[in-house]
Design a protein around this nucleic acid. Sequence first.
DNA 1: TTATGGATTGATGAAATCATCATGTCACAC
DNA 2: GTGTGACATGATGATTTCATCAATCCATAA
Lengths: 123, 123
Amino acid sequence: MLSDPNRPLYEVKAGLFKGLAHPIRIRILEVLSTAPEASVSELIAATSLEASHLSQHLAVLRRNRLVVADRRGSLVYYRLAYPQVADLLRVARALLGEILETTQRQLVDQGGLPEIPPVSVPA
Amino acid sequence: MLSDPNRPLYEVKAGLFKGLAHPIRIRILEVLSTAPEASVSELIAATSLEASHLSQHLAVLRRNRLVVADRRGSLVYYRLAYPQVADLLRVARALLGEILETTQRQLVDQGGLPEIPPVSVPA
DNA sequence: TTATGGATTGATGAAATCATCATGTCACAC
DNA sequence: GTGTGACATGATGATTTCATCAATCCATAA
């Protein structure tokens, strides 16, 4: 595998997922999936994060080419770099729904009552 | 956001991506996407990893419910926990293709010759 | 020019992850 | 029972990521 010509590709792909591997960044991308764009101020409002903390995560998303930014006047607007990012989130949500549902059912089947009422998957 | 009822969902979803955020694990999932199942020995052969190292990554995948294992005799067979995992990889590959293509084009447009010939996206 | 609001960058320590190696478990043969 | 092959788990340092805070940059207003 070390000499696999596709190896760099796996790295890049893993980098893509790495960009997604944080709740805050998922949240940011979800917001940008529902609106064509959002300024940093709007994102601060939507996430209630401290500016610099949000900015750090935006930098990660930029580095992994998941979002693009452009400055207009004194504000910076962010949007998804590709519509496929929204696709990815959609597929992930579908998979997640399956996982949660199955896990839930397994708990019930094992005799123990589910501790938590069936979770809805709105996000 | 701290009081967002969907917050735990973002965490679970991020956990999902976290499970994917490593080249080796991507590689493992790609192998399992093309075959209905594979034993650990077969995965060792496919990845040329040391047994315990592979096992660690398989544990991560199991914890994040991306694969399931069952033991038959003295061998342990792994397969994707849900077909949607393959979907996710497919969508990721499509997005990755876009990213690489666009990045490539931007480099050319900026006047510098691309250092690397156009990358194919077979994996 | 200075000041101010909006956003990013840099530096720090805490926390999680990765890679390696040693140990432990499970199934089967003897 | 012992031994062996096939995997998994635990412990360790090295690396990376996260969260917080201070400092900086950039655009506009005064």
